[in-house]
Write a protein that binds this DNA or RNA. Sequence first.
DNA 1: TTGACATGCAGGTATTTACCTGCATATTAC
DNA 2: GTAATATGCAGGTAAATACCTGCATGTCAA
Lengths: 106, 106
Amino acid sequence: MDADKVFKALGDPTRRRLLDLLCEKNGQTLSQLCENLDMARQSATQHIDLLEAANLVSTVKRGREKLHFINPVPLHEVYERWVRKFERQRLSLLHDLKQELEGEDQ
Amino acid sequence: MDADKVFKALGDPTRRRLLDLLCEKNGQTLSQLCENLDMARQSATQHIDLLEAANLVSTVKRGREKLHFINPVPLHEVYERWVRKFERQRLSLLHDLKQELEGEDQ
DNA sequence: TTGACATGCAGGTATTTACCTGCATATTAC
DNA sequence: GTAATATGCAGGTAAATACCTGCATGTCAA
């Protein structure tokens, strides 16, 4: 997993919208996806290229169409690497801050 | 939670490194953090400002020092909104893609 | 009180990003 | 075969980003 590509891919509202659209209906074509975006098809393609580079979306060509599918694996890996780690320490991290704030008041 | 700010904050290796540093030792000063980064202090400050804007880091002033603390809450919210959603559909999404690939072979 | 230290603030620049337009190619339908 | 459709590819621009340097301010300690 390339955390940089995954987070950068997720760091744009258009690309998150694309993932949501595919979550509603997987396997849509480029044209179908574009109907729900307010930009030129070519611009959407560039966003999709980044999602593909981050391995968040896989595509299959069928005739002249290109079908798009979500790949949830990188998101899971992001969770394992970046969320669970902090999640485990969540209470103690908040405890550190609370202690510091109380120290200030005294 | 502002998903855009959180993902954009996470979409940079320096800022992820800062979070890792704070995970190792919470409550560090700006100078301490800078010792582990290969850039000017002012540049690190700009990265920290983004982490603060995303609410991933909170700070407390103590005398002439500024202490930095991780806030794990936004990461948890990202997980709830962006990871669990796809996680729940993980198997069915992969099923869609598998079906499509098999359809191509026939 | 003065020098050292920690941080803040104000620009300046090179690179990346997110759009666009115009045109080319490939597939399908009549 | 030809027109319509779906996508690919090549540039061009404005804004955002990630750095930097230089200087100002505030705090501590001798």
